[in-house]
Design a protein around this nucleic acid. Structure first.
Lengths: 223, 223
DNA sequence: TCGAATAGTGAGTGATTACTCACTTCCATT
DNA sequence: AATGGAAGTGAGTAATCACTCACTATTCGA
């Protein structure tokens, strides 16, 4: 029936004020994720969501004023958590102790993000589907990415570049290139070819491609 | 009003049997592209398409039995042409004369695909949006890619690998990695950051990233 | 010039849509 | 045990949906 939403669910299933949701409320959210993922936002009928949640249709609108509010309630927390690790990781200095090499840095991010996306694939799919049609959603997401995530990654990159471990290149370009490779890996693995997939090999090949592409050299100067 | 669909339009605007479309029919197709791109397939109302085409709603259903058939009529020819150049390019031998180096090969594909996608961005957006929801569409697309495009690229890659110009790696992995970079470039350029975009620099950086990532060496053996 | 086929029309249809509201049920606090 | 507020209900509603059909207008070969 369901699969991989267990851990984050517990955190998603609180209201903004921290109160726990009732049983029926969690069933509504679960059902909505299912139906949005299958049919898209416009194609999903609130009547079907209610049916799958085994709940009266009115119950949905008791908790969410509109269908769009239900969508946002599902997508927003995941969007935030897509970015969070970069923010957190920056709190204890990322620069020196944790990863002396750029390779270690990239490998850590890769593993971390793969794991997260792996267990949130459904909601992320909904997000990717709907972002083009909801200006508010897009602006909020791009805003957070642009203002919080990118600058921090840029700072980390500058560190490794200064150590001569990677080629000089505008930070945004570096992020775009490496991001595309990560993104392509995930899309292929989860959406295009979930079968016939040797994950160990593909992951390593992707990593090597990224490192070579960015001109990684083990080290020249020591910090 | 409209912008970049001029050249392929002339070819799209024939029926399967080659007959030309009437004026109203072309207006329907144009309007449908607009509305599908803005609202998605489910979110698009046939009444709005008719309105924008300045046509009676019944006229749409005279030419297309259902709304879904209208979608397919728009998307199918573009899906085919996304792949076609690889097929054609292979007809006159790609291996020797045209591009002695792998770099030239990649650069040619890059330029070719960029130009095509640039002038078909709207329909491609529709395709990307709707493919997840229409199994028939997805299967047809993946079928053509898997059976016609991938084997031919794989053969070309084998050629350059044999000449020692690129690293040994499974062909599908190579294609995925290079494809991700191309895809990421296009997504960023057309969907995420159409402003603040130095195209010359970004295109060159992407190319270099791809070549380095695949372990490109100018040449070792001569053919 | 005619006739028949094709293109185009728009009011009309039943189904479905998101959402409302008067109502009942549940439960924590007194 | 009483009570007030929140949770839950489901029939009902106006709007919108994709699609039909009886009809008119246009085109074009004979």
């Amino acid at each position: 029936m369901n699969d991989s939403m267990e851990h984050w669910m517990e955190e998603l299933l609180r209201k903004d004020d921290g109160e726990r949701m009732t049983d029926k409320q969690t069933r509504i959210v679960r059902a909505a994720i299912e139906v949005f993922a299958e049919k898209g936002y416009s194609g999903a009928a609130t009547s079907e969501i209610a049916q799958r949640a085994e709940v009266a249709e009115g119950t949905i609108f008791r908790h969410y004023k509109t269908k769009k509010e239900l969508l946002y309630a599902i997508v927003s927390p995941i969007a935030a958590r897509l970015i969070e690790p970069f923010v957190l990781r920056d709190l204890y200095p990322l620069f020196d102790t944790p990863h002396p090499t750029f390779e270690g840095f990239v490998r850590a991010i890769l593993d971390n993000r793969i794991a997260f996306i792996e267990s949130n694939i459904k909601v992320i799919r909904i997000m990717l589907q709907e972002v083009p049609f909801h200006a508010e959603l897009r602006d909020r997401f791009l805003g957070v990415v642009g203002q919080r995530m990118l600058p921090r990654i840029a700072r980390a990159l500058e560190h490794y570049r200064a150590k001569g471990q990677i080629e000089a290149m505008p930070a945004l370009t570096t992020i775009r290139l490496a991001g595309s490779s990560l993104f392509g890996y995930l899309i292929t693995r989860f959406l295009i070819a979930p079968d016939d997939w040797n994950d160990g090999e593909e992951r390593e090949a992707t990593l090597q491609y990224m490192l070579r592409g960015l001109g990684y050299r083990a080290s020249e100067t020591t910090s």
